[in-house]
Nucleic acid binder design. Structure first.
Lengths: 135, 135
DNA sequence: CAGTATCCAGATCGATACTG
DNA sequence: CAGTATCGATCTGGATACTG
């Protein structure tokens, strides 16, 4: 059944958390699967410096203004990006990824890598499943 | 800005994927954030042997029959769990985690670990943000 | 026992229009 | 430029009732 993984060990690290903390942990992990969050973070991560709202919007193709605003506000609230407003006309707002944001990307990277590398196996599994459904 | 991470490298592993493959990859990663999927997998992972539907339902506290069925069917389709039906009365159906399912849990584990360990920093970030909002 | 079928409430997200 | 406000389509998930 594959390499042994002591799942109790995994749970034990979470058992130490209060209910609030567990909720927050789940919330953060959930962001990983959000349609836009990781993409937005990665655009900020690969940028040389801060990015304006409109540039992020260009880079994250297909995102609506509303969704980008929401995504960036969540990231800011959780300390994963910074938002700096300049008192100019027209307004300028600059976004940057934070150290903890980079850390988080590093954690997520292996999962994406593994999943992308395993995509053939998943396709195969689905093909088998769907074929069997024709019984 | 934290330890350097070459995010282009991350993207490069995905650029090699077709659109279909990328969609599937995203779909699988999305499961990680699903309310019940990881919990269900971990219950099967820590079980000594196969589990019946009703036992899984007991272990995954709070899940509805409908959601458990859906979760298990998705997992089965993607080859992450197996489902064996016994032709008995009353019916017996046994679920087990697969090797690839265990592999996936191993990938997800570091992310949860890191997030749980970082929960204090996230709480702090939110407290700062919410306080600042009282300007 | 292990589901399926149906209904319904809440969240999500895009499109569109408007604003300091 | 960088948003906010509003509407409507879609998705999700729980509760409930029913079945081979």
């Amino acid at each position: 059944m594959g390499k042994a993984l002591n799942w109790r060990e995994v749970n034990s690290c979470c058992d130490a958390l209060s209910e609030d903390e567990e909720t927050l942990t789940r919330e953060i992990v959930t962001r990983v699967a959000d349609k836009w969050t990781l993409w937005t973070m990665s655009m900020l991560a690969e940028s040389e410096g801060p990015m304006r709202f409109s540039r992020v919007m260009e880079k994250v193709e297909g995102i609506s203004q509303k969704s980008l605003t929401k995504t960036l506000r969540q990231l800011e609230r959780d300390g994963l990006v910074t938002r700096v407003v300049f008192a100019e006309v027209p307004p300028r707002v600059e976004y940057s990824i934070t150290a903890i944001g980079m850390e988080m990307l590093e954690q997520v990277y292996p999962l994406w890598q593994w999943t992308a590398n395993s995509v053939g196996r998943f396709q195969q599994a689905r093909a088998n499943y769907d074929r069997r459904a024709l019984d």
